[in-house]
Simulated assay, not measured.
Amino acid sequence: MHFVRKSTCLALVLAIFAAFPAQAEFKGVLDTPATQTHLAAQRPLNAVAAAGARLVAVGLRGHIVYSDDHGNSWEQAAVPVSSDLTAVFFSSERSGWAVGHDGVVLHSDDAGQSWQLQLDGHRADTLIKDYYGKKARQGDAQAAALLPDIELYFSSGADKPFLDLWFANDEVGFVVGAFNMILRTDNGGKSWTPWFDRIDNPLRLHLYSIRGQGEQVYIAGELGLVAVLDRDTQYFQAIPVPYTGSFFGVLPVASGAVVHGMRGNAFRFDENGANWQKLDTGVLGGLTGAAMLDRNRLALVSTAGDILIGKLSSGRFENLTATRGMLFAGVAFVPATKSLALVGNNGAAVVPLIEQ
């Protein structure tokens, strides 16, 4: 889904120790702003979204870039951390959030030009443990049962990633991530409430994607997990699915949603998950991004470099030719130019759509 590269260089480590005094304090990614580089739009990017007419993309090492000319050129934003970022979402033209590794939640109120840190893994660790610890002391049996899993989850450190987010408006939203991590805010991210106990996920599967439309909110995740928010109980109820592979994304469509994931698998289902239709993508690459083009057409992209345009009415797709080959991680529709903004391991690219 995203392209995190790890490497070790002994010479570099020795040079760092030689250049700084022994008492110098080591700064981690949460204390180190993203490095400014004119190559940021050519480095690995994991997600792209629209902020009004602006495009905003996020990627490795805290890189966030934005474009005001429909993806033809990009500027790098100021970001206070250098954690790898996995997803971005704008609830309005100016207000948006990005999430990533190390429990990072960033907020922008200027359409993605600058960002502020709202949450990190250390604060999330304390918040979650305190929340369920208090409930357990008050006699909540479910909270008491969750605490061992939460302790185990954070025992190796506060480095767990958020993998996606969705906001209904500038105040109400969710972030989701590895091992069932889900938090909700009602005040634009100023404070967060853990929702570990409000989702039907006893195996603590990873939550890869969350999206909503109107009063319908969907989560897609590991091992075929699909959950729908019950409006009355405010609980994400898992629904039966015809596939047990992981779903990397969920996209609301008319009267339901589309989920997409491993080995080219994509399905459309109705609001309650009672009826499912397998979409004929014709590819085997993992489907990592999706965008609606109109009420009937959508685009899908894959880690094998596929760009698919299909119709919900027929469930069939055609493959577009990429102007810049890469392992795609995300896609956004650009209505002004009738094109697709694409991101992946080689940065950002734009592909014009063929009129159908």
Rank of each mutant, 00 (worst) to 15 (best):
residue 297 R to W: 14
residue 297 R to Q: 15
residue 298 L to A: 10
residue 298 L to Y: 12
residue 298 L to I: 14
residue 299 A to T: 08
residue 300 L to Q: 10
residue 300 L to W: 13
residue 301 V to A: 02
residue 301 V to Y: 09
residue 301 V to I: 13
residue 302 S to Y: 03
residue 302 S to G: 12
residue 303 T to W: 05
residue 303 T to D: 06
residue 304 A to T: 13
residue 304 A to I: 03
residue 304 A to N: 13
residue 305 G to H: 05
residue 305 G to S: 07
residue 305 G to K: 00
residue 306 D to K: 03
residue 306 D to C: 12
residue 306 D to P: 13
residue 307 I to Q: 12
residue 308 L to C: 15
residue 308 L to A: 12
residue 310 G to C: 12
residue 310 G to Y: 02
residue 310 G to P: 10
residue 311 K to D: 15
residue 311 K to P: 01
residue 312 L to E: 08
residue 312 L to F: 13
residue 312 L to G: 14
residue 313 S to E: 15
residue 313 S to T: 15
residue 313 S to W: 09
residue 314 S to E: 11
residue 314 S to A: 06
residue 314 S to Q: 03
residue 314 S to H: 04
residue 315 G to D: 11
residue 315 G to Y: 06
residue 315 G to S: 13
residue 315 G to C: 12
residue 315 G to W: 07
residue 316 R to E: 06
residue 317 F to C: 07
residue 317 F to P: 10
residue 317 F to G: 06
residue 318 E to R: 11
residue 318 E to A: 14
residue 318 E to V: 14
residue 318 E to I: 14
residue 319 N to W: 04
residue 319 N to A: 15
residue 319 N to M: 14
residue 319 N to D: 15
residue 320 L to K: 09
residue 320 L to R: 10
residue 320 L to Y: 15
residue 321 T to V: 14
residue 321 T to G: 04
residue 322 A to W: 03
residue 323 T to H: 12
residue 324 R to S: 13
residue 324 R to G: 07
residue 325 G to L: 01
residue 326 M to P: 06
residue 329 A to Q: 10
residue 331 V to I: 11
residue 332 A to W: 04
residue 333 F to P: 05
residue 334 V to Q: 08
residue 334 V to P: 00
residue 335 P to K: 02
residue 335 P to H: 10
residue 336 A to T: 08
residue 336 A to V: 09
residue 337 T to H: 03
residue 338 K to Y: 06
residue 338 K to G: 06
residue 339 S to D: 11
residue 339 S to F: 09
residue 340 L to R: 00
residue 340 L to K: 01
residue 340 L to T: 04
residue 341 A to Q: 00
residue 341 A to M: 03
residue 341 A to P: 03
residue 341 A to K: 00
residue 342 L to A: 03
residue 343 V to A: 06
residue 343 V to Q: 06
residue 343 V to K: 02
residue 343 V to I: 05
residue 343 V to C: 12
residue 344 G to A: 07
residue 345 N to A: 12
residue 345 N to M: 09
residue 346 N to R: 13
residue 346 N to I: 02
residue 346 N to P: 00
residue 349 A to L: 06
residue 349 A to Q: 05
residue 349 A to R: 00
residue 349 A to W: 00
residue 350 V to W: 01
residue 350 V to F: 03
residue 350 V to M: 07
residue 350 V to S: 05
residue 351 V to R: 00
residue 351 V to C: 10
residue 352 P to E: 14
residue 352 P to C: 12
residue 353 L to Y: 05
residue 353 L to N: 04
residue 353 L to G: 08
